[in-house]
């Protein structure tokens, strides 16, 4: 059979299609419909997945390192939150809370575990040996990208969990969590930015597109990851702070009204 119509990376449309079918199937099976907001997030997630892995891969073929970094950031910081926002709780509950899965779900959505798992995946994927293999081996590349997205979903779970059974952590804890996430991200970005030679051999092995020198490209990619993730995480936890502030003031339980205070006018 000829899969040419699927483009260079057939796994991408196939993956998107599977996700969409699952989503639709779940709706049919349960006979419920997601809210339009959830559906919107989900569609947005699919679109992002599609473009992240087709349009940006085009640049990756030109050995543009910073586009590759952008792709990783989208895979870990944008797609997982969109997926979590787009998935209704009733869709996940039957299988996430099912008897065989539940203990694993409990374990992996623990914020400490989620944090460590994601950090481990993200940091180890950027070791030169792993990274170069990823660039050369298409299947390994796909595998790692799926790893990014899966560990990303787990990482974002404590922030955006749709399931009250596996709840989000409290707002201040969310802030702390995202704040600490800067450590593994910086641990990856800083050495890339500050290195005084090209770390990943693959980028030296072929022609470099766009007329950028591999070294500059690397610094750019490192900076994108360093400042990009920093700004992004900061924006997110700023938003969380304001959510928290609203909860802590307006949404606080109103105390029972005591008798009206006795006021008097000072003469």
């Amino acid at each position: 059979m000829d899969f040419d119509f699927l483009g260079e990376h057939p796994s991408v449309p196939i993956g998107c299609a599977i996700l969409a079918i699952l989503y639709w199937g779940a709706c049919r099976l349960t006979g419920r419909r997601p809210t339009s907001r959830q559906a919107g997030w989900f569609v947005l997630a699919l679109i992002t997945i599609f473009f992240t892995h087709t349009a940006i891969d085009e640049f990756a073929d030109d050995r543009i390192f910073f586009m590759h970094m952008l792709q990783h950031l989208l895979q870990t910081f944008v797609i997982p939150p969109l997926l979590l926002l787009g998935t209704p709780d009733w869709m996940l509950r039957p299988w996430v809370m099912s008897r065989p899965v539940r203990p694993f779900a409990r374990f992996f959505t623990n914020p400490v575990v989620a944090f460590l798992l994601f950090s481990a995946v993200f940091v180890s994927a950027h070791f030169p040996a792993v990274f170069d293999r990823m660039c050369r081996d298409e299947n390994f590349h796909i595998f790692l990208h799926v790893c990014f997205m899966v560990s990303g979903v787990i990482m974002w779970w404590p922030i955006l969990s749709p399931l009250p059974e596996l709840p989000r952590v409290s707002y201040p804890a969310q802030i702390m969590y995202l704040f600490l996430l800067m450590i593994p991200m910086t641990a990856v970005a800083a050495p890339i930015t500050l290195a005084n030679q090209v770390i990943y051999g693959w980028y030296l092995e072929g022609p470099h597109g766009w007329g950028i020198k591999p070294m500059d490209d690397q610094v750019l990619g490192g900076l994108l990851m360093w400042i990009g993730q920093g700004t992004y995480l900061m924006a997110v936890f700023t938003a969380i702070f304001f959510k928290w502030s609203r909860k802590e003031d307006q949404d606080m339980p109103v105390l029972p009204e005591t008798p009206r205070p006795r006021l008097r006018v000072v003469s």
Partner: peptide
């Protein structure tokens, strides 16, 4: 809020007379 209420309407007359409300002797 104790003095003027959440809407700020309570105790206004006292304020307008130039004498802001004070905690009462009982308080």
């Amino acid at each position: 809020i104790v003095k003027y209420g959440r809407t700020g309407s309570r105790g206004l007359a006292a304020y307008m007379s130039g004498k802001p409300p004070q905690p009462s002797a009982a308080d």
